[in-house]
Design a protein around this nucleic acid. Structure first.
Length: 784
RNA sequence: GGGGUGUUAGCUCAGUUGGUUAGAGCGCUGGCCUGUCAAGCCAGAGGUCGCGGGUUCGAGUCCCGUACAUCCCGCCA
C-alpha cells in the first residue's frame, strides 16, 4: 500500500510540476481558464458563443481565481495522474476493481509522464524545470548525463534518458558543448564518434546546431526547416532546425526588407535557406536552454526552398501522438531528436559491431534472402517462384544453415548484420522483420566464444556510454530457474526463490504436504514492501500465478505494525512460521508468497510473480544487468505434439559427457548453449554446433525426423558435415532489442526507421497490399 | 487462435443517470504587435462521436457485430 501511495504521490507531483513556477503560471492560468470556461458557450453558436465566453473570461479576470476551482483542477489532475500511474505499473492485476477506467488515454498519459511532460497538456512548466518527483534512478541518469565528459572522447548521448525529451528538444542533438565549441570554429559538427556531420558538400556554410559565441561576426548560410516562427510585427524570430539542432534567426526590416517579407510568409516545416551574420544575443535575451542560446543569426537573405502543408502533428509534440499516426507520417516523426537519436545510436552500435568484429578477424558475408522453407522453428514468409510453378522460396528466419556452411567452407570467422523474417504474431519486442548480428566461429570452445563476445559487447556498450564489467556472470539454466524462476532473469533486483521443502517436510498443511508427497517442492519469495497491501491487491496476484501454472496462491503478509495476515497461517506450526521468517529474512512490511508444486512449475510460478512484483513495487530499473545463461537442456518435451523437440535448434551440440544419454534419457542431456540476457530480456543466444554427421542423425532421430525426411530437408547440411566440417559455434544478437535497451525504449518499433504495427501492416506505405490478377497468374497462384 | 483496453475537431482529450444546437487546450486562418524563444492580444474556421445493426419517445453515452490500434496468453529464440 505504501508503495502504491508513493507512486501516486510521485505521479501527482509529476503532473503538477508543470503548474508550478514562474514559467508555468501562464499554463496554470490557462488550464484554470479552460476549466472554468467549460460550458460557458454551450448552446450558443458563432458570435454569440464567443460573446458569452468573452464575458466569462472578463468576469474571471476581475474576480481572480477562486480557490475551489483550483482545488477541483488539482483533484482532477491527481486522479488522472494516479490512473496513468497505475496503468504504467501494469495494474492488470487489479482489473475490475472500482471503476478505474484504463486504456489509450492512460497509455498516452504514461508516455507523456515518461517523456518528462506533464500528465496532460504539454507541460510548459517542465520545459523550464524538470519534473521534481522523478524516480531516483532517473535523477541519477540525468546527473550522469550532465556530468562533463572527457573532451573529444565520447559523444554525449542526449535524449537517451527518460526525462530528457523536453530539454533535449531545445538543445538540439549536439554532442557535448565542449566539442560543439571546438567544432564550431571550423564550421563542423560531430554526431557520434566517427560520423562527421557538417556543412561540407552542401549549399550551407555551417550547420545550425553548432553555432556558438565564438562564431560571432561570421557570415553564414544555413539551410533547414522552420521549427517555429515568432512574429512580433516589426521583428520576426524564426528557429531554424536541421539535423544538428536549432538556432534562432532574426529578421529585422531595417536590415533586410526582402528577407523580412519572406519571414512573414514562412510556416512551420517549410524548408528555407538563410544567409546572415552570427552575433551574440543582446544581454538578457540569451536562452540557456538552447545549445546555441548565446547567439542568433541576423538574416540578410532568405529563400524558400520548399513549402509544407500543415503537419498532422507538431514536430515537437509527437511524443503525445498516437503511434499509428506517427508511423504514417514517419518522415515527420523522425525530425524529432528522439527518433533521430535512436537511429543514430543504432548506427553507432552497428558500426561498432562491424569494427570490433573486423578487428578480430571476422569476415562479413551476405547470405541469400531467397532460401528454402524448412518446417522447423517459426513460420516462414514464402515467396512464389515464377520460373518454377508451384514452388516457393522462403525468407530466412536466420542465416543459421548458411553460416554453418560457411564454417565448413573454411571462413572460420563470419559475421553479418542480417535481416531475418518470421511470420508469427507480433509483440512490443517482435517485428515480422528484424535484424540480427549473426556470428559464427570455427575451432572454439564455449569459453572462447563467450570471452570474445564479452569483449565485443564491452566495446559496443561503451558506444552508449555504458561500462560493462567483464567477465559477465554466468548462470546455468538450472540455477537460473532455481533461483529466479526464469531462464532470462532480471538481476537488477533480488527477491530470489527460497526452497522451503525441508521446513515443511512434516507439515500438517495439506496443500504443502501433498505437493511434497508427490515429489514436488515448496518454495517462496519475499516481496519487500508489499506486506501492507490490501487483501484485494494481494488476491490480484493469484491470476498472475495461475497463468504460470499455479493451482492456488498461498501468502503471508507481515504488516509494518507487526501484524500477520494470511489465509494459511492457521495451518502452520509455530516453528514453521519461524523458519519462514528466518529463511526469507522477513521484516515487517514484507509479503511472502508460496508455490507448492512440481519443481519446474513452482519455479515458473514464483518467477512470474517475481517479475510482476518488481513492476508493482517499482524496484530498481536503472543500469544494465548483463549475464550469460548457459547449459540449456538439449531437448524439451512438446506436450502438444507428444514428442521431443529441440530446445534451441536441431544442430545444437550436446555435452560430450552426455552423448550416451541421447537415446536413453533425452531429458537430462545438456547442450553447449548460451543466452545473453540484459535486464530480463534475451538479447542473444547461440550454441556450439554438431559437426559430425552421425551425431546429427542421432539427434534428428530423437526429434522424430526420419532419415529420408532429414535427407529431404537438411541433406545439404548432412552432406557438408561429411566433408571435413570443423568444430564450430556461434551466436546471434537481436540488434533491435539491444538498441531498444540502450536507448531506454519500451518497444523495438522505436529503434526501427519504418516499423510495422502489431498486425504486420505499415501505416506509411500501406503494405501489405493487393496485387493484380496478372501478377498472381505470373507466379502461378489463383485468386480465391 | 484467445483475452484486456481503446477509437469524439488537424493533434491531445473532456462529455455527469440516456435528454435542447457535442466542448476545451494546442494547432490552423485573418488582424494587431520591435526582443521573443511553446511569444502575446483580438477575431474566425473546423465534428458522419471508427463503421454497421439493435433497444428507446430520445443514443457520443446502453446492447450486439465489425474494422483498426495497443498490451498480454498461445505462437515465436
Amino acid at each position: 500500500m505504501q508503495g502504491a501511495l508513493r507512486g501516486r504521490e510521485a505521479a501527482f507531483r509529476r503532473a503538477r510540476c508543470r503548474l508550478r513556477g514562474g514559467a508555468a503560471s501562464r499554463a496554470r492560468a490557462r488550464l484554470l481558464h479552460a476549466h472554468r470556461l467549460r460550458g460557458a458557450g454551450r448552446g450558443a453558436r458563432g458570435p454569440e458563443r464567443h460573446r458569452r465566453r468573452r464575458s466569462v473570461r472578463r468576469a474571471l479576470r476581475d474576480a481572480g481565481r477562486p480557490a475551489d476551482a483550483w482545488a477541483r483542477l488539482c483533484a482532477g489532475l491527481r486522479a488522472h495522474a494516479a490512473r496513468a500511474e497505475s496503468r504504467w505499473r501494469g495494474a492488470r492485476g487489479r482489473r475490475g476493481r472500482g471503476r478505474v477506467r484504463r486504456g489509450r488515454r492512460r497509455e498516452r498519459a504514461r508516455r507523456r509522464l515518461r517523456a518528462g511532460y506533464g500528465a496532460s497538456g504539454r507541460g510548459r512548466g517542465c520545459r523550464a524545470r524538470p519534473p521534481r518527483a522523478e524516480s531516483q534512478g532517473a535523477a541519477q541518469a540525468r546527473r550522469q548525463a550532465r556530468r562533463p565528459r572527457r573532451r573529444h572522447r565520447r559523444p554525449r548521448r542526449a535524449g537517451l534518458g527518460r526525462s530528457d525529451g523536453a530539454r533535449h528538444a531545445h538543445e538540439g542533438r549536439t554532442t557535448g558543448r565542449a566539442r560543439g565549441r571546438a567544432c564550431a570554429r571550423r564550421g563542423a559538427h560531430r554526431l557520434g564518434r566517427q560520423l562527421m556531420f557538417d556543412a561540407r558538400y552542401s549549399i550551407r556554410t555551417h550547420v545550425a546546431g553548432a553555432l556558438r559565441a565564438a562564431d560571432a561576426g561570421v557570415e553564414v548560410t544555413l539551410a533547414g526547416w522552420v521549427h517555429r516562427r515568432r512574429d512580433h510585427g516589426g521583428l520576426i524570430f524564426v528557429d531554424l532546425r536541421d539535423r544538428s539542432g536549432l538556432v534562432q534567426c532574426v529578421f529585422d526590416p531595417e536590415d533586410s526588407k526582402a528577407a523580412f517579407v519572406v519571414a512573414e510568409s514562412v510556416r512551420p516545416e517549410w524548408v528555407v535557406k538563410l544567409s546572415g551574420v552570427v552575433r551574440k544575443r543582446p544581454p538578457g535575451t540569451e536562452n540557456p536552454g538552447l545549445a546555441t542560446g548565446e547567439v542568433e543569426v541576423l538574416v540578410t537573405e532568405a529563400e524558400v526552398l520548399n513549402r509544407s502543408e500543415t503537419p498532422p502533428f507538431e514536430v515537437e509534440s509527437a511524443i503525445a501522438t498516437d503511434e499509428t499516426l506517427r508511423l504514417k507520417y514517419r518522415y515527420i516523426d523522425m525530425r524529432r531528436p528522439e527518433v533521430l537519436d535512436a537511429l543514430a545510436l543504432r548506427d553507432r552500435i552497428t558500426q561498432r559491431f562491424r569494427k570490433s568484429l573486423e578487428h578480430r578477424g571476422f569476415i562479413e558475408v551476405e547470405t541469400p534472402m531467397l532460401g528454402r522453407s524448412t518446417p522447423e522453428g517459426a513460420r516462414d514468409f514464402i515467396v512464389p517462384s515464377r520460373l518454377n510453378p508451384g514452388k516457393f522460396y522462403a525468407l530466412p528466419q536466420s542465416p543459421q544453415l548458411y553460416k554453418q556452411l560457411l564454417m565448413v567452407g573454411g571462413l572460420e570467422r563470419y559475421y553479418q548484420i542480417a535481416r531475418c523474417f518470421r511470420d508469427e504474431d507480433l509483440r512490443a519486442d517482435r517485428q515480422p522483420e528484424f535484424t540480427q548480428v549473426d556470428i559464427e566461429m570455427s575451432f572454439v570452445t564455449q569459453d572462447d566464444l563467450l570471452a570474445m563476445m564479452e569483449e565485443v559487447m564491452r566495446e559496443v556498450l561503451r558506444e552508449a556510454s555504458v561500462d560493462l564489467p567483464i567477465p559477465l556472470p554466468r548462470l546455468t539454466y538450472a540455477e537460473a530457474m532455481d533461483r529466479f524462476g526464469s531462464d532470462r532473469p532480471d538481476l537488477r533486483f533480488g527477491m530470489e526463490l527460497v526452497d522451503l521443502s525441508d521446513v515443511f517436510a512434516g507439515t500438517e498443511f495439506k496443500v504443502f504436504a501433498s505437493a511434497l508427497a508427490s515429489g514436488g517442492v515448496v518454495k517462496a519469495i519475499c516481496a519487500k514492501g508489499a506486506g501492507d497491501w490490501s487483501r484485494g491487491r494481494i488476491d490480484a496476484l493469484a491470476p498472475v500465478a495461475a497463468e504460470a501454472g499455479a493451482k492456488g496462491l498461498a501468502w503471508i503478509a507481515f504488516s509494518s505494525e507487526g501484524e500477520v495476515r494470511s489465509p494459511i497461517a492457521k495451518f502452520l506450526r509455530e516453528e514453521e512460521m519461524a523458519a519462514v521468517r528466518e529463511r526469507l529474512a522477513v521484516e515487517p512490511g514484507d509479503l511472502v508468497l508460496f508455490a507448492a508444486d512440481a519443481r519446474m512449475t513452482a519455479n515458473e510460478v514464483l518467477g512470474a510473480l517475481r517479475t510482476h512484483l518488481a513492476g508493482e513495487l517499482d524496484l530498481a530499473k536503472e543500469g544494465f544487468a548483463c549475464l550469460w545463461v548457459v547449459d540449456f537442456p538439449l531437448f524439451k518435451w512438446d506436450t502438444e505434439e507428444d514428442k521431443w523437440s529441440a530446445n534451441h535448434h536441431p544442430f545444437t551440440r550436446p555435452f560430450d559427457e552426455h552423448l550416451d544419454l541421447i537415446e536413453s534419457d533425452p531429458a537430462s542431456v545438456l547442450s553447449y548453449s548460451y543466452d545473453l540476457v540484459i535486464n530480463g530480456i534475451e538479447v542473444g543466444g547461440g550454441t556450439l554446433r554438431i559437426h559430425d554427421a552421425d551425431l546429427q542423425r542421432r539427434v534428428l532421430k530423437v526429434l522424430g525426423i526420419a532419415e529420408d525426411e532429414a535427407r529431404e530437408q537438411f541433406g545439404f547440411l548432412l552432406d557438408a558435415l561429411t566433408y571435413g566440417a570443423p568444430p564450430h559455434g556461434g551466436i546471434a544478437l537481436g540488434l533491435d532489442r539491444l538498441v531498444m535497451l540502450l536507448a531506454h525504449k519500451h518497444s523495438i518499433r522505436d529503434v526501427i526507421a519504418f516499423p510495422k504495427t502489431s498486425s504486420g501492416a505499415c501505416p506509411l506505405t500501406g503494405a501489405p497490399g493487393p496485387v493484380s490478377a496478372r501478377q498472381l497468374r505470373e507466379v502461378h497462384l489463383r485468386p480465391e
